[in-house]
């Protein structure tokens, strides 16, 4: 973890959750990144963790960027396209900063854990004090660096807090293998203090198992 933190400080341009995700993925494993964006995480996982990586991305423009980078990526949708994949096809199915934009997060999660032996989910924590503050003091939906959209044009339709997510995992009888919350400076917070993590963690990363 200290090593990871050092990397985080070195490379501010990398998304913080990427390094935490990379930490959770076994080297050389088979990985499907759902909502892989421009392929930054996939590329990092294949160069640093030697994974066999594939991606699904909604935006065709970003897919084309990924393929030009030499990544195996298709245009697709987390809600619709995971059903095509056979069970146990991957060691890890990753959903990085995407679950809040899915129509049916519960189904997506179930599909992820059918297709993959593990699921890695990272999301912005809606229980973070700044979000609470925005609602409490301003009476407005939060708009900030990590939640940059206004309510009417946001792709994020299913926000949740860390505690909400843990509840969903319990209800689905999904076991949480590892969980990390992270302050906006990248400093991790232990999940053993759930309330504190939910208050101070701006991002959360969960490693799940069926």
């Amino acid at each position: 973890m200290i090593e990871t933190m050092a990397k985080i400080r070195e490379s501010d341009h990398q998304r913080l959750d990427h390094l935490l995700i990379a930490d959770m993925v076994e080297p050389g494993s088979k990985v499907l990144d759902v909502g892989c964006n421009d392929g930054t995480l996939l590329e990092m996982l294949s160069t640093q963790r030697q994974v066999k990586g594939r991606g699904i991305e909604l935006s065709q423009k970003k897919v084309n960027i990924c393929v030009a980078r030499g990544l195996s990526v298709i245009q697709g949708d987390a809600d619709r396209d995971l059903v095509d994949y056979p069970a146990d096809a991957y060691d890890y199915v990753i959903l990085s900063q995407t679950i809040q934009a899915t129509h049916n997060p519960r189904t997506v999660l179930r599909e992820m854990l059918r297709v993959g032996r593990h699921a890695v989910v990272s999301f912005p924590n809606f229980g973070h004090w700044r979000v609470r503050g925005s609602l409490f003091f301003n009476g407005r939906m939060p708009v900030n660096e990590s939640l940059p959209y206004t309510w009417y044009d946001t792709p994020n339709i299913h926000f949740c807090t860390i505690r909400d997510f843990v509840d969903l995992c319990d209800e689905m009888k999904v076991s949480v293998e590892r969980a990390l919350a992270m302050k906006n400076n990248g400093e991790p917070i232990k999940m053993s203090h759930k309330r504190l993590a939910n208050l101070l963690g701006e991002q959360a990363v969960f490693l799940l198992k069926r």
Binding site: K52, R54, Q60, V63, N64, C66, V67, L71, S72, V73, I74, Q75, D81, D84, Y85, P86, A89, Y90
Partner: peptide, 18 residues
């Protein structure tokens, strides 16, 4: 074709060019 290849967890990229 992509759907079929996904169904066998093949290594597939798919680009649609505008």
């Amino acid at each position: 074709i992509v759907h079929a290849l996904n169904a066998c967890a093949a290594n597939v990229s798919f680009v649609e060019i505008e």
